[in-house]
Computed example of a mutant assay.
Amino acid sequence: MISFLQTIIYILGGIMIFISLLPLIRNDYWVFRVFEFPRAQKWVINLIILFASLIFFPSDAYFSFGFFILIVANQLYLSYQIYPYLPMAKKQIDSVNLDFKPSLKLLIANVYQENREWEKLSCMIDREKPDVVLLLETDEWWKNKCNSSFGREYVYQVLEDRENTYGMLLYSKLELRNTQIHYLVKDEIPSIETDIILEKRAIKLYAIHPEPPVPSENPKSTARDAEILLVGKKTNADQKPTIVAGDLNDVAWSYTTELFLKISGLLDPRRGRGFYSSFHAKHALARWPLDHIFCSGHFRLQNMKRMESIGSDHFPIYVQLYLAKTKDNSDELEVTTADEILADEKVENGTE
């Protein structure tokens, strides 16, 4: 007779298998996309269920054995999904020493518009001394605090503050050229395109913050996916060193982010190094990587770290990149004709 505990294990195991496979349905509605986020959490919970089934189920019961096989299969599937982001996996961007020059130090932070702990951000910038600072969810209050705190040290500025949580402030010690403000999908959501001049070489920077697929803002990921992929298509057309940075409201391992990497030809410094989960800063058990810095094969990674809390629901992300003399395309993800067709369809659906 099945005990109450065994019944609970069956139910939890069934739910875990269901939410692991649900994102395979390529539907833009949020309920299909949201379960892409907690991949590491699903791996841990599934492992607990696996051990529980070993302990509490009889070995001679066919149904119990079948359930155990399904849980093992799901564990292998989840392991396959998270493996590229573990330290033992192959790095997509090679590492070099900190003394290699020229290098670019970049800090990105979603400050959370209602957050008022601006001093923590100011102290962090004073300590780390990044060349470029990208701040998201910045309204006029944040713009004024940043300008009065460290604005004089950053001569080149792009100030697109908004009161709708999609404000964007870019501060740079390095010269910025050819700066453009785009509204790729929605009129109220800006993105920045600019050239950073590093020792007479131009680095194309795209800064984006698409809206998340959540019921309170947009129940579908269509607009988010379109904005991400539009930038991916633009970066693919650029031959110069390129960086895409921002809060993508999408995890590093999602189907859309992987498609973006294929279409853009950019690389993810997280691969082979760790999750660097940046959201949610105040909930350790519900945390995943939403804030990203992708770059072309012109760069080598010198340093990457998730910074301490600044009072926001996001942790800042810091990278130091060495700009090499030659581009290394060897670790770009392979793109197929089907990928290109799918990207075009997603862009069309999100911009129509």
Rank of each mutant, 00 (worst) to 15 (best):
Y80I: 08
Q302P: 09
K240S: 11
L170A: 00
L174I: 05
K220I: 14
K90P: 11
I15G: 00
Y166D: 01
W142N: 05
P210C: 07
S122M: 14
M88A: 12
F63C: 09
G274S: 01
A237G: 12
I293A: 03
Q6I: 03
R306L: 07
L230W: 10
F299Q: 01
M304Y: 00
K120I: 03
N46C: 07
D99H: 05
F57M: 08
S64T: 08
W142G: 13
F32L: 03
E188H: 12
L5I: 06
P210Q: 04
A52Y: 03
N110R: 05
L21T: 04
E137T: 00
A207C: 11
P210G: 08
D126R: 13
E128G: 03
T138L: 10
D328R: 06
L107F: 06
S103H: 06
K262V: 04
K42Y: 09
A223Q: 15
Y10C: 08
G246H: 03
E193H: 11
E227S: 11
I317V: 12
D195K: 02
F35Q: 03
D291G: 02
Y166W: 03
T222V: 14
R116Q: 13
H292Y: 02
N249W: 08
N249Q: 09
T242D: 05
L70R: 04
L184E: 10
F299Y: 02
L70M: 12
I203T: 04
E175W: 00
H314G: 02
I243W: 06
N249T: 10
L86G: 04
F32A: 02
E153D: 15
S79H: 04
P58L: 13
K233N: 15
L121G: 15
V158T: 09
